[in-house]
């Protein structure tokens, strides 16, 4: 895993449920779960912008680069 999505940490910081965020973003809970569990392969800028707007945070708060063990 190279890019870690810290969506769960931000949700806890903002006291928001995943289902609430999904409804606010207009995406399905299943899709947002894929993002939260680091199974997503890509994220659209529009989705990232909407998450940052709803959680009042920066992209850097959500995305973290984690070097692979071999690096």
């Amino acid at each position: 895993m190279s890019i870690r999505v810290n969506l769960d940490l931000m949700l806890v910081k903002r006291g928001m449920k995943l289902s609430t965020l999904a409804a606010a973003l207009g995406v399905t809970l299943a899709n947002l779960s894929i993002l939260k569990t680091n199974k997503a392969r890509a994220i659209r800028f529009s989705t990232l912008e909407a998450i940052c707007r709803e959680l009042d945070c920066q992209p850097g708060d959500l995305l973290e680069y984690v070097p692979d063990d071999g690096d």
């Binding site: 995406v27 899709n31 947002l32 894929i34 993002l35 199974k39 997503a40 392969r41 890509a42 994220i43 659209r44 989705t47």
Partner: peptide, 8 residues
């Protein structure tokens, strides 16, 4: 298709 499904 998998890439598209796993693009949020």
């Amino acid at each position: 298709k998998r890439d598209q499904e796993l693009t949020i």
